[in-house]
Design a protein around this nucleic acid. Structure first.
Length: 571
RNA sequence: GGACGCGUAGCUCAACUGGCAGAGCAUUCGACUCUUAAUCGACAGGUUGUAGGUUCGAUUCCUACCGCGUCCA
């Protein structure tokens, strides 16, 4: 492409015109902010003039070039130079061309940041000449540049790229302007809201590369959290691929909700004119695949639940689900321990992790039945603890609920709640917060487990377990119910619960799923694991928003009123 | 949904019991040019989240709203 198509004299005019006309960056909340932007515009103009008049560049090349042929990443160049002393670098120079973002300027010294690494560069007039020195002076923190030169060590020994190009090459190349000022270079970006809303700034500023103060804890490293998140997904895929599981993708848009109990997001398909839901779980589709003969399947994908936002809940979250034919929940317990240990080793090189001020060993597990857990953690101030036998006595769980409420525990229950439902609530109330070290809680009441197989010897209990780490639920697994008639009845029970006012219960019988079971689901174990929560544990992140790149936030500049006015579904 | 807390310059933070809204970084201009949060000098930068109220006077007290956080549901 020739650059001559660009009307040279008007280029800057057009830039300015576009800036003015379109107000291309609708971000000026104050005049001062706009002034800062205009300063950068002036700097860009200076760089353009310099490039076209002194460096022989076209206007486009001068201000927004289309690339830079770097020879090494900053990390790679660093690696080459690190083992060499000042003398060695002088005797046999290590040269290279690197690109990056300017994050500090100290006289002739500046710091480039790229790919999670930093490298100091040194620009001196004698080495680069007056024109490039002028270009250097027009740069701002935040700009992207490319530089060519050779490594040296400063007086204090810091590895530094001395900018100096071989004949015929430009030593310092302007690559892109930061038109907006970066946050304080020392304190970085602290504002939690802004860190989530403008994750790109968070990633620039909180990449663990800040100067660490002596005795201070390590600087926040948002970049590393998400690098680790990718490593978690990679490790999970490796684990299952090695065991003969097939990774599959099932629908995100469901016409019948199922596989979990939760409030959905509603949407609509125009061409078919039918209501659809964003899926709350992939479960029923994955089991259809096991019916179809994929004996081992797994899926890692998003689920959507139209519920509150908290440090442990985001409306869209990532779930791993896997199913294994001819396995039961005991097999899955072993697999779970293996999986979590494997992932921890892969990601952190250790099963030890630190979360919420606690050291957790993801390689050491304990198992308790739900009933045992209730007995174990029953609070003495709530009066006489339940006994094992009482779990079989109808009406007892309601007494326990009343006891807990009397002792000041918040405990919601409606008259008519089944004993099984109350038992599950009692468990959550008394035990959940204590489950810091990896703990498998097994055998769940039938009433809260509409998709699980009952225990052969205890018809009111199911072969189901959840595992807890750090005080919250991370995964949920069971021997899958495969009797179509029983499944039909349990769906109908759910629909009745729904009609009774339980908003989370399933609202419709998934007849096709019952039909699939009719063709024969082999005995199967299935499990779901919340990936975000697992990443929280492995990275020591206190909030789920710290492990989701763009967590859900209320849109800015729109108050509730305004949203109601313009919203499609104002209720 | 409830309780508590926070919101001050582009960023990070001050401002005593209600009494002239301040500093560092970044920006602009200048000096310096082996610096390490570079340094030195100068200039500039504010709807104290929004709207009301109390008061001679409100960043500060009160009310409502907006946004965020923590805990609970």
């Amino acid at each position: 492409m020739s650059h001559s198509f660009l009307p040279k004299p008007n280029y800057t005019e057009s830039l300015r015109y576009r800036a003015k006309r379109a107000k291309p960056l609708p971000l000026f909340e104050t005049e001062y902010e706009e002034k800062l932007y205009n300063d950068r515009l002036a700097s860009l103009e200076k760089i353009r003039a310099l490039g076209t008049e002194k460096l022989g560049l076209s206007p486009a090349e001068a201000v927004y070039p289309n690339g830079f042929p770097f020879t090494a990443t900053l990390a790679e160049l660093r690696q080459q130079g690190e083992p060499r002393s000042a003398e060695e670098l002088e005797a046999s120079p290590v040269t290279g061309a690197v690109a990056g973002r300017l994050v500090a300027i100290r006289g002739g010294f500046a710091v480039l940041q790229q790919g999670g690494s930093r490298l100091q560069i040194y620009v001196h007039k004698d080495a680069v000449g007056p024109d490039l020195m002028e270009l250097y002076k027009a740069l701002h923190i935040g700009d992207h540049i490319g530089v060519r030169g050779s490594l040296m060590r400063t007086r204090t020994g810091e590895l530094t790229l001395k900018v100096q190009a071989p004949e015929g090459q430009q030593a310092l190349v302007f690559l892109a302007k930061a038109m907006l000022a970066l946050p304080d270079k020392y304190h970085g970006l602290e504002d939690v809201e802004q860190r989530y809303r403008q994750r790109y700034v968070d990633l620039i500023m909180n990449s663990g590369l800040q100067v660490a103060e002596e005795g201070e804890e390590a600087p926040r490293n948002v970049r590393e959290v998400f690098v680790k998140r990718a490593a978690v997904l990679r490790a999970i895929r490796q684990f299952f691929d090695e065991r003969g599981y097939l990774e599959v993708e099932t629908p995100m848009l469901h016409s019948i909700l199922g596989g979990a109990t939760a409030r959905p997001f509603n949407t609509h398909h125009n061409a078919l004119d039918i209501p659809l839901y964003l899926r709350i779980a992939p479960e029923l589709f994955l089991k259809r695949l096991v019916v179809g003969g994929f004996d081992r399947v797994y899926e890692i994908n998003r689920n959507f639940r139209n519920e509150g936002v908290s440090t442990r809940h985001n409306p869209e979250f990532t779930m791993l689900e896997f199913y294994q034919a001819y396995a039961n929940y005991h097999d899955l317990m072993n697999l779970t321990e293996e999986l979590i240990g494997f992932v921890a080793e892969k990601v952190n090189g250790s099963t030890l992790t630190h979360f919420n001020g606690q050291e957790i060993d993801l390689g050491k597990w304990t198992k308790l039945s739900m009933r045992e857990a209730i007995l174990k953690w029953w609070p003495s101030e709530a009066g006489a603890a339940p006994t094992m036998e009482e779990f079989d006595i109808p009406g007892k769980p309601a007494n326990w609920a009343a006891q807990l409420r009397g002792a000041g525990y918040k405990f919601e229950f409606k008259p008519g709640d089944s004993d099984g439902k109350l038992i599950a609530s009692v468990f959550e109330t008394v035990a959940e917060e204590h489950l810091i070290q990896p703990t498998i809680i097994y055998d769940f009441p039938l009433a809260v487990s509409p998709l699980s197989k009952i225990k052969p010897d205890e018809p009111e209990w199911t072969e189901r377990f959840e595992f807890y780490i750090g005080g919250f639920e991370v995964g949920n697994a069971f021997s899958e119910l495969n009797d179509p008639a029983d499944q039909q009845r349990r769906f109908e029970d759910q629909v009745r619960e729904k009609e009774r006012g339980d908003e989370e219960a399933m609202s419709e019988v998934d007849e096709d799923y019952v039909r699939a079971l009719g063709y024969g689901l082999p005995p199967t174990g299935g499990e779901g694991i919340g990936i975000d929560r697992l990443v929280m544990l492995l990275t020591g992140s206190r909030s789920i928003r710290d492990v989701i790149l763009f967590p859900l936030m209320r849109p800015q500049g729109k108050g509730k009123e305004e949203q109601k006015e313009h919203g499609e579904s104002a209720e």
